[in-house]
Design a protein around this nucleic acid. Structure first.
Length: 597
RNA sequence: GGUCUCGUAGCUCAGCUGGAUAGAGCAACAGCCUUCUAAGCUGUGGGUCGUGGGUUCGAAUCCCGCCGGGAUCACCA
């Protein structure tokens, strides 16, 4: 039983004894005491006045006196207005420290063979463009979420659905055939995904020029769009692809391979990975089968033009297309097929989709449609919806060239980290290779933490010019704290100091030490809560608070390696535990911590 | 227009299952490197928590209205 529950139970007991009224223990409000007040835990007595029929001070004092008798771990109490502040015994904190020190994976639950299986879909790129800033938020959230769910004792399958079919890919293919046949990533020296993206842009440019010409010849905008020979060619190519045309298929395969090779590099740089990748080209036909099955079962209906729809008006939504009149599939069809295949492949208990909030409606519909098709998990699917990444000038627009490329951004970050590190004279004595690895870790730490510390559901602003800070509430600050802790451990070992596994229960702890232990105590709860709410941001902000607290602790405590063995033992143990929590917390976020920086 | 969502310091963000005097960082200013890493620490200034009501002993937090930003309502994905 946690300390808060113990207090709740005892307060409930106190009320029963003192005022003769039964009260639910869970209704007692126990919070962590404010920093500026003395005490560790606070019982809010206001709601209890109805029962006590006394004023707040008297009620608080009554309860305090009872608790101090009942719970030996409470050392003293103080009543201020309607708040009963309890100070815990030193031995309680010493026990906490010993417990924490004994647990390597502090706060984590290990999954077993029978643990629930959660599949998390994230990334989900199109194959016609390289990854950009928006994808970075998706990838980092998805990866971190996987770690968080895993830390809460679930088996996790990370999955990626690649959108490798459709008109947009045909545009790139057509542009390549027309203006770049023979060019490869090898021959051009351009990363595969960027090369294909360049052809996509090229198509758009040529298409625009064509439109301009047609309009100059007297067509209206609408007429020009319909008459476009380029677009007609792209559509024809799509039909050829659907028909399995050999030439088109082989170009498609080749260009997709280029893209995948490029994506792999980006994914590796970001430190994310997947257990299973699905391709829409392989799932859409399953989707069609499912829709037709639904039509037979009578949960969907067909219109006169042969298109298939689902009626969701009873669920407060509208009617939604599932299959076009020509029998080809839409987005929804593909997601149905993909879901079906996934559940055939894995014994999934829960499905989580990490997809931007512009698709909130889509997932509402998907959930209902899957439910109608008889998938038990349909209703329970989770759309982990996150907000857009905006630039200081506003939204990213590919037309205006304001899209921030993922590869460029990472490279910029590494350069900044390298420059700053050299300027500050860090990492002297490291080999070039070792130093580069650290720059990489710091740069990614900065980028990842920046993206993850913000509440996922909110839109966020990202300023690439100012790049990302290395000071303040940032990844590097936390990494730095960890590096210092590791340094302390090395120094201790060098001077033959043995770090104890435990401290005595009578050990005297200073104010700062208790502050830190209070945070240590909270970590498992924070992980659990963030796990329920699926929010890496909660972990991120907690780890920052811990690191900040530790840095102050580091500066305020006198150096006592030689003077006082007990103090030294406590300090080293706290450092070790704090380091362990920082490492675990950063692990959840998907951020590495360097031994030195 | 319907639905959803956001609005907290000059800027970027915490805090939101109701609790005490609303917190960090950046930016500005003033200190601290013979003491375990100054990517650090300490201090100063900076707020009608968009706005108006309601519920409550108590509201940044819950409910309603309004204002402002965003998303979505495609035989696009």
């Amino acid at each position: 039983m946690g300390i808060e529950q113990q207090i709740q139970t005892s307060v409930a007991e106190a009320i029963q004894n003192l005022y003769g009224e039964p009260i639910a223990a869970t209704s007692i409000q126990v919070t962590v005491t404010r920093k500026d007040q003395t005490g560790d835990y606070t019982v809010v007595v206001f709601p209890l006045l109805k029962v006590s029929k006394k004023n707040p001070e008297q009620t608080g004092t009554d309860l305090g006196n009872f608790l101090i008798e009942k719970l030996p771990l409470i050392a003293s109490f103080e009543v201020i207005k309607g708040f009963l502040n309890l100070t815990l015994a030193q031995s309680y904190w010493a026990t906490q420290l010993n417990l924490a020190a004994a647990d390597e994976s502090y706060g984590f639950t290990k999954a077993t063979e029978t643990s629930p299986m959660v599949m998390i879909e994230y990334s989900s790129p199109n194959t016609n463009k390289p990854l950009h800033l928006g994808h970075i938020r998706n990838n980092l959230l998805g990866f971190s979420l996987s770690r968080l769910v895993e830390a809460n004792g679930n088996r996790v399958v990370k999955t990626n659905i690649v959108n490798d079919r459709g008109i947009h890919i045909c545009k790139s293919m057509l542009a390549w055939k027309k203006w770049g046949e023979g060019i490869t990533p090898e021959s051009s020296g351009i990363k595969g995904d960027h090369l294909v993206g360049d052809f996509y842009v090229r198509f758009d440019k040529e298409y625009k020029a064509e439109q301009k010409q047609l309009m100059a010849d007297g067509m209206s905008k609408e007429e020009a769009e319909l008459a476009s020979p380029l677009m007609a060619e792209a559509r024809e190519m799509l039909l050829l692809w659907e028909a399995g045309d050999q030439e088109v298929t082989s170009i498609w395969k080749m260009m997709n391979q280029w893209v995948y090779a490029g994506f792999d590099i980006t994914y590796k740089a970001l430190g994310v990975d997947f257990d299973k990748i699905y391709y829409e080209s392989e799932t859409y036909s399953t989707g069609k089968e499912q829709v037709l099955e639904g039509l037979q079962k009578g949960v969907f209906y067909q219109r006169d033009d042969q298109s298939i729809w689902v009626d969701l008006t009873n669920d407060g939504l509208d009617e939604k297309l599932l299959l076009r009149s020509d029998g080809t599939s839409v987005y929804m069809t593909q997601d149905i097929g993909t879901a079906k295949m996934r559940f055939n492949d894995f014994p999934i208990d829960k499905m989580v989709y990490v997809v931007g909030n512009e698709q909130n409606y889509h997932f509402q519909v998907l959930s209902l449609v899957l439910d109608k098709l008889g998938f038990e998990w349909g209703k329970e699917l989770v759309h982990f919806s996150y907000g857009m990444v905006e630039l200081p000038e506003g939204k990213m627009k590919s037309r205006e060239g304001t899209v921030v490329d993922a590869d460029e951004l990472v490279a910029d970050m590494v350069n900044t980290a390298r420059e700053m590190s050299r300027e500050l004279g860090k990492l002297e004595g490291y080999s070039e290779e070792e130093a580069e690895a650290v720059y990489q870790t710091i740069a990614l730490g900065a980028l990842k933490y920046f993206m993850l510390k913000v509440d996922p559901k909110k839109n966020m602003t990202f300023n690439p010019k100012e790049s990302i800070d290395f000071n303040g509430n940032t990844g590097p600050f936390i990494q730095y704290t960890y590096a210092r802790i590791r340094s302390i451990m090395r120094k201790a070992a060098d001077s033959q100091v043995v770090i104890p596994d435990q401290i005595s229960l009578t050990a005297k702890l200073e104010y700062k030490e208790v502050q830190l232990l209070r945070m240590v105590e909270q970590f498992p709860v924070v992980v659990k809560e963030a796990g329920d709410a699926y929010s890496p941001a909660i972990i991120a902000n907690f780890i920052y608070d811990l690191a900040k607290e530790y840095n102050q602790f580091y500066h305020e405590l006198p150096i006592m390696f030689e003077e006082d063995a007990d103090k030294r033992a406590i300090r080293l143990l706290i450092s070790r535990v704090t380091g362990s929590i920082i490492k675990n917390g950063m692990w959840i976020l998907g951020i590495n911590v360097p031994e030195r920086m």
